[in-house]
């Protein structure tokens, strides 16, 4: 189950690229996964990095022309919309393993 943040970003990607819903969600999912992240626990900061660093390459592979402006548009939409960020409830593995050495 993806977060509302993932759904929102996929919807915006669909709008700015002309992808179908399936294509937009699939492309975003691939980019998120290749960043070592999970769509079900994605945060705004993580999504921003994915859109800036990985998404241009993914879009280029799928024949999108102006990849940077598409990503910038999605990022702008992200900043303008109040999206409920997924729980970063300090129980994800990174947080636990970050804390362990500070016991």
């Amino acid at each position: 189950m993806e977060t509302p943040l993932f759904d929102f970003a996929a919807q915006k990607l669909e709008q700015h690229t002309g992808f179908s819903q399936l294509e937009a969600r699939g492309t975003l999912r691939i980019a998120v996964k290749s960043a070592g992240l999970e769509p079900k626990s994605l945060t705004v900061a993580e999504l921003r990095v994915v859109l800036e660093k990985l998404m241009p390459g993914e879009l280029e592979q799928r024949g999108v022309k102006d990849t940077l402006s598409v990503c910038s548009a999605v990022l702008r939409d992200l900043e303008d919309a109040p999206i409920a960020e997924s729980d970063s409830d300090s129980s994800n593995p990174d947080d636990i393993f970050r804390r362990l050495a500070k016991a």
């Binding site: 960043a35 070592g36 993580e46 990985l54 593995p93 990174d94 970050r98 362990l100």
Partner: peptide, 26 residues
């Protein structure tokens, strides 16, 4: 497994290398 998937996050600056390394040690 987590060490493997964390390497991508480390490269992107989303995770500190020492946290990824702790997965490997575990």
């Amino acid at each position: 497994h987590h060490y493997g998937i964390t390497r991508a996050r480390v490269r992107l600056g989303l995770c500190e290398p020492i946290v990824g390394h702790r997965y490997l040690l575990w």
